[in-house]
């Protein structure tokens, strides 16, 4: 119990929350997309640069505000996406996100954990004309 036993807040999560990687924005990204959890107030914007063939992710930056889970998840995802095929991003599901976080996520917090992933996926979906969304939310999920 106490701080040492606090699974959800293992050092890695707190480290990414306090020192987010790839935080900021990219000038002229291939696509940029924003999402939020209205109930929590979590927001994430992701800027993504694809290679000339639109197949591989070359650069990612994010900005956001919200709880430690949502922001750390965005930071960790931004590292993982670097060099990833867009097709592989689109294949990701919530189990992949939870594996990436490496901690137990309580059911109430899953939507915080998957927000960044949804933003990155929906942004790509809009860019390729597969989905038509103003904004991403995770409220309707699960």
């Amino acid at each position: 119990m106490g701080i040492g036993g606090s699974d959800m807040y293992r050092q890695q999560i707190l480290d990414h929350y306090k020192n987010p990687r790839n935080y900021g924005e990219i000038e002229d990204p291939t696509y940029s997309h924003t999402g939020e959890n209205p109930m929590c107030g979590d927001t994430i914007r992701m800027d993504v640069v694809l290679d000339d063939d639109d197949e591989t992710i070359e650069a990612v930056a994010f900005q956001g505000d919200g709880c430690a889970i949502s922001q750390a998840s965005a930071s960790m995802l931004s590292e993982q996406l670097h060099g990833m095929a867009v097709a592989d991003l689109q294949e990701m599901d919530r189990d992949d996100v939870i594996d990436m976080l490496g901690v137990d996520i309580s059911p109430m917090r899953v939507k915080c954990a998957v927000l960044a992933e949804k933003v990155a996926q929906d942004g790509a979906g809009i860019y390729f004309g597969d989905v038509d969304l103003e904004k991403t939310t995770t409220e309707d999920d699960e």
Partner: peptide, 22 residues
Amino acid sequence: DVHAHDTSEILNEFAVAIRAGD
């Protein structure tokens, strides 16, 4: 600056039940 959901989650580790949200 700690989000209330994070606070509540940590408090839960101490078996302190509060509400966080709007």
